[in-house]
């Protein structure tokens, strides 16, 4: 479906703003503490925000300028996939630094597969410049499927580690923090599953399927959970401390 629906434009713009706000909060945290895990999370959210923003800009252009002869959304989707694969690399670095501590052996497989996704997205972007017609890149839905699989594995590892850590903690604050991080991981995992399913539907000519809206809804919930779990605002700390 070449036509861009207004709800998609609004939805993506809203989530991009949410992501940018969380990115700024993490940046402030990094300026305060200068710790490696914060840096990796900052880079994760930077790539994530850019991916979402790129996608939103593509929708805006497609909505206002038309999306048929110049498939703006095709280009923005591919660029977003590239940035999401990049963000996965920083998630791997975060998990390795905080939880796994297994060195390069742990990270290398993830980095290689994300590298393959980045390479395939680049190739698709270059191809787009030779023929900007909408829909040609829909055939390359296998890129998002591969991205979804590697993202799913990456975030499931984060979820498992965070739940384990939450279980081992007896103090309420870290227990809640790790549970929120795990919940964030689950939301992001579901986001990738929905995007992969939506891309498969789009390749069959059924764009903006319910999976598209479900995916962005999970993104919205995930960003909020990420904000609570990582940033842990003062009001949340007060509630946790009072309840314990």
């Amino acid at each position: 479906m070449a036509e861009v629906v207004l709800s998609a434009v609004i939805f993506e713009t809203f989530i991009s703003v949410m992501l940018i706000i969380v990115f700024i909060l993490i940046l402030l945290k990094y300026i305060q503490r200068r710790k490696k895990p914060v840096l990796y999370l900052l880079l994760t959210f930077a790539s994530f925000s850019l991916a979402s923003l790129t996608s939103a800009i593509g929708r805006w252009l497609g909505y206002f300028l038309g999306n048929e002869t110049i498939g703006f959304t095709d280009l923005s989707n591919m660029t977003a996939f590239l940035l999401l694969a990049l963000s996965n690399c920083f998630v791997v670095a975060f998990v390795e630094t905080v939880f796994a501590n297994k060195g390069v052996d742990f990270a290398i497989t993830f980095l290689v597969i994300n590298g393959i996704v980045i390479g395939m997205s680049m190739e698709a972007i270059i191809y787009w410049f030779s023929d900007t017609q909408f829909g040609l890149l829909a055939k390359k839905f296998y890129i998002i499927v591969l991205l979804a699989i590697i993202s799913l594995v990456t975030y499931i590892i984060l979820v498992v580690y965070a739940f384990k850590e939450a279980k081992m903690n007896t103090e309420k604050l870290p227990k809640t923090g790790f549970n929120l991080i795990a919940a964030y991981g689950i939301s992001v995992s579901l986001l990738f599953v929905c995007f992969a399913l939506d891309s498969v539907m789009a390749s069959l000519g059924k764009g903006y399927s319910p999976f598209y809206y479900m995916g962005w809804s999970f993104a919205m919930v995930g960003v909020f959970l990420g904000y609570l779990g990582y940033i842990m605002p003062g009001w949340l700390k007060n509630i946790i401390q009072k309840s314990s």
């Binding site: 945290k29 503490r33 710790k35 490696k36 895990p37 914060v38 630094t97 905080v98 939880f99 501590n101 580690y161 850590e165 081992m168 903690n169 604050l173 870290p174 923090g177 790790f178 991080i181 990582y230 940033i231 842990m232 700390k237």
Partner: peptide, 15 residues
Amino acid sequence: IAKRKATKIVSDSFW
């Protein structure tokens, strides 16, 4: 050590 390290790292870095 393995158990308390992740909590300590996240507490020092974020919370």
